[in-house]
C-alpha cells in the first residue's frame, strides 16, 4: 500500500458573515433582517428572497425553543427556533444530558465560533419566556 498523510490547517475568512461570527464568539445571536419584507434569518441569509437591496444586522435576545432534538453516538443536536427569527437553526446542545424545551445561545469555550445552545431545564409550562 502507498501511505500518505496530510495535515491541513485552514484560515477561513468570515467575509460578509463577520458580524454573525463575531456575535457567536461572544455568545450573541446576530441575525440578518430585511427592511422590506421583515424576514429575519438566523443563521443569516445573504439574500432573503425579496431582493431587498440592504439587509441589516439585528441582535436577537438569544433564547430559543427546541423544535426537534436528536441524541446518539454522534452527540446531541437540535433544530431550534430563536426568538425574533423567521428561520430555524441547527445547534449543538452543550450538555448532552440536559433537558427542557428552552435554552440560550452560549459562547464557545475553545475560541471557535459555533452555534451552541445551553438548555435551561425548563419545559413549556414553567418557562418564563
Amino acid at each position: 500500500m502507498i501511505r500518505r498523510e496530510v495535515s491541513l490547517s485552514y484560515e477561513l475568512a468570515p467575509g460578509w458573515l463577520a458580524p454573525h461570527v463575531d456575535g457567536l464568539l461572544q455568545g450573541r445571536a446576530v441575525a440578518r433582517g430585511c427592511g422590506t419584507c421583515g424576514r429575519v434569518s438566523f443563521p443569516p441569509e445573504r439574500h432573503c428572497g425579496c431582493a431587498a437591496p440592504a439587509p441589516h444586522w439585528i441582535t436577537l435576545e438569544g433564547w430559543a425553543e427546541v423544535v426537534f432534538r436528536t441524541d446518539g453516538l454522534d452527540g446531541s443536536f437540535a433544530l431550534v427556533s430563536f426568538a425574533g427569527s423567521s428561520t430555524k437553526s441547527v445547534v449543538r446542545l452543550v450538555l448532552d444530558s440536559a433537558t427542557g424545551r428552552f435554552g440560550t445561545l452560549v459562547a464557545p469555550t475553545d475560541g471557535q465560533p459555533a452555534l451552541l445552545l445551553a438548555l435551561n431545564g425548563k419545559g413549556a409550562s414553567d418557562d418564563t419566556h
Binding site: 461570527v21 457567536l24 446518539g72 454522534d74 437553526s89 445547534v91 449543538r92
Partner: peptide
C-alpha cells in the same frame, strides 16, 4: 461551514432532524 457545519454536526444528525 459557516452555520450548520459550525456545530460539528454529522450527516446522520441532520437527516435525523
Amino acid at each position: 461551514q459557516w452555520s450548520d457545519g459550525m456545530t460539528g454536526t454529522t450527516s446522520t444528525a441532520l437527516y435525523a432532524l
